[in-house]
């Protein structure tokens, strides 16, 4: 109980400590908006034939005639009230768009990560148990393949094999099968929502939509996770306390899992955090290939259309996610390793 309180205490402290970093991101996105070309007043002036007075008027309403610090204060106030501006391509508030698309990205990333971990951990452990053998080389080969083939290539190959040739996979057109109605938006995560509603038919169909893009991403991040597990596991297996465990006659399973893997997981936790953040932001290519309605492709489309509010929102969202993920990783690390005190 006391340990739980300590961890909660440390976590709260860590969260407070990450606020400056978030403020820095806010200032950065604000300055980015000033530096990028384009005059929001012209965009927002309703009438295409608006005269200079009307644009001036709009500038006043938007507060663009004020000095920069005042504008920054307005910007902060907007963000504090959850107003990230309006996307011109979708015509909706950016917050609404992001709230709609973030679950799609999260669902894809988390599934891919779980898939990658459930492959990478056993592979890494096996490679570490039999270093230099055929098995070790095979694992190394799979990892190299995963990391050197770009996701859009591996994605297309998977589509070609499983959809075009074998015809097992559904057509790669987003999260929902063609004949499924979207569930009521409870969490936004389709797999969770369909389960809550109890619509198992649609759940299966959503899952089959998810498998190919998730596999594509999992393949890509398999390498860092498996290699890290192997290296860490090798180091741990060579350490003194493993020798002690053997000298006490503990079972092989106990030595490898409880004494070996649990210690080896510590660095893997850190890498997993980094991999997760990277995946969430960098899976644009996978989202594009599979027409997945995620935040990455949303931001890319907005950027191409010179629609800056969504891009800003995206940067802010990613920064927050990054902070949160790091916080989670540190907390997990603190729980997993009693020697670490989270400061």
């Amino acid at each position: 109980m006391r340990a739980v309180i300590t961890i909660a205490h440390h976590t709260a402290r860590r969260f407070l400590a990450s606020i400056p970093a978030l403020l820095g991101v806010l200032v950065f996105t604000f300055l980015m908006m000033r530096v990028l070309p384009g005059d929001p007043a012209v965009f927002f002036a309703s009438d295409p034939n608006a005269g200079p007075e009307e644009i001036e008027q709009m500038r006043k309403t938007l507060g663009l005639d004020r000095p920069l610090p005042v504008q920054m204060a307005y910007y902060f106030r907007d963000i504090a009230t959850g107003n990230l501006g309006r996307s011109m391509t979708t015509g909706q508030p950016v917050v609404t768009d992001l709230a709609e698309r973030l679950p799609a990205s999260l669902e894809l990333t988390v599934t891919a990560l779980v898939l990658a971990l459930s492959l990478a951990l056993p592979l890494g452990v096996l490679a570490a148990l039999y270093p230099g053998t055929l098995l070790d080389h095979a694992v190394r080969f799979v990892c190299s393949l995963g990391v050197c083939v770009p996701t859009f290539v591996s994605g297309l190959v998977l589509i070609y094999v499983f959809y075009v040739i074998l015809g097992i996979a559904p057509d790669p057109t987003g999260r929902l099968g063609a004949f499924d109605a979207p569930p009521p938006g409870i969490t936004g995560l389709l797999l969770v929502d369909f389960l809550i509603v109890g619509d198992f038919e649609s759940w299966r169909s959503a899952l089959s939509q998810l498998i190919l893009p998730a596999s594509t991403m999992a393949l890509f991040v398999l390498a860092p996770l498996a290699r890290m597990t192997r290296a860490s596991m090798l180091a741990v297996l060579g350490s003194d306390f493993i020798r002690t465990a053997h000298s006490l006659g503990l079972s092989r399973r106990k030595v490898i899992i409880t004494y070996g893997l649990r210690n080896a997981l510590l660095p893997v936790i850190t890498i997993t955090g980094v991999v997760f953040s990277t995946m969430l932001g960098a899976n644009v290519l996978v989202e594009k290939v599979f027409a997945w309605p995620g935040v990455g492709s949303y931001a890319l489309d907005a950027l191409l259309a010179s629609d800056y509010a969504p891009v800003q929102g995206f940067v802010l969202l990613m920064a927050s996610v990054f902070v949160l993920v790091n916080l989670t990783v540190d907390t997990l690390y603190g729980i997993a390793d009693p020697r670490v005190t989270i400061e």
Binding site: D240, S247, T258, N263, D337, P338
Partner: peptide, 12 residues
């Protein structure tokens, strides 16, 4: 063993 601290599992 020598260096008993290292010979014990650090997270148990």
């Amino acid at each position: 063993f020598q260096n008993a601290r290292g010979a014990l599992n650090p997270i148990r």
